[in-house]
């Protein structure tokens, strides 16, 4: 066994795995620039025809807007609720702390389909209609365990000591939280917010079950899919991908800067 053979095999595996991972994305992006009607080879573009069609499609642009609204709103709510809970449970030993944590984390083990259906049944029973609000409520449920877990893990002893120092110097509760805890947690708060926003932005089943007239982008794409393959779908999909990538790049950049400042 030579080390060089091992290294060569490693790079070969990495190449094949990356090809497998990127193949569908590359096909998606390339055939969004197709000229003809079918998003399959041979490629006869490049053409921006289908992109123009997507941009002019009111359903898609409305869906895009609705998705952003629900994504940012539910992420903000999940981050605030997650922070309050993480702070209270990390800083004081409650009699039922174990149970509280179990309850807050429980939604992570239940399928989105079941959470969505349960909400649908409950809303039906209470006579509440389907709406963007209903979707947002569901998205807070699925994202709360994540924001809570991320923020709880960042509220360790080190931060507690700094807070104690501020208390000793006479700072009030509110001042410690706003001027010490939140700034210290800033990267984690942003990461939690963006992860929640990205998951909500892309979520389908709950959005599908809880919406009627105002729908989010994944639901729009789903209904377009019913009429078969089309380069327009490729263009819409590429657009969604591009926006997600921008968000991820932004988070990476912020985390990188936070790490650099910490060093």
């Amino acid at each position: 066994m030579s080390a060089r053979l091992g290294a060569w095999a490693s790079w070969a595996y990495l190449g094949v795995a990356l090809l497998f991972i990127f193949l569908p994305v590359l096909v998606l992006v390339q055939f969004s620039f197709q000229e003809g009607l079918a998003p399959v080879p041979p490629f006869d573009g490049p053409s921006l025809k289908w992109w123009a069609k997507v941009m002019a499609n009111r359903k898609i642009t409305d869906g895009l807007w609705n998705s952003l609204l629900v994504g940012l709103g539910s992420a903000a709510m999940a981050t605030i609720l997650g922070f309050l809970a993480a702070y209270a449970l990390a800083r004081r030993k409650h009699r039922l702390s174990g149970l509280y944590q179990f309850l807050l984390m429980a939604p992570i083990t239940v399928s989105y389909l079941i959470i969505g259906m349960g909400l649908q049944i409950t809303f039906n029973h209470l006579g509440l209609g389907k709406s963007l609000w209903a979707i947002g409520i569901g998205h807070v449920v699925i994202n709360l365990p994540l924001t809570f877990a991320i923020l709880y893990s960042q509220l360790g002893e080190h931060q507690a000591n700094i807070e104690r120092a501020a208390y000793d110097l006479g700072a009030s509760d509110a001042r410690v939280i706003l001027e010490i805890t939140v700034p210290m947690l800033w990267p984690a708060l942003l990461a939690a917010f963006f992860i929640a926003a990205t998951l909500s932005w892309d979520e389908f089943v709950i959005a599908f079950l809880m919406s009627r007239f105002d729908v989010t982008l994944p639901v729009v794409i789903w209904s377009m899919l019913r009429s078969g393959l089309s380069p327009e779908l490729n263009a819409a999909g590429t657009l969604v991908f591009a926006i997600s990538i921008l968000a991820v790049a932004l988070v990476e950049l912020l985390l990188w800067r936070a790490r650099r400042n910490a060093n």
Binding site: V25, F204, I221, G237
Partner: peptide, 17 residues
Amino acid sequence: LPFWTSYVIRSYSWLLV
């Protein structure tokens, strides 16, 4: 990176492939 493509779109892309 492709983890961040839309879930519906990812399945659709495999259909194309």
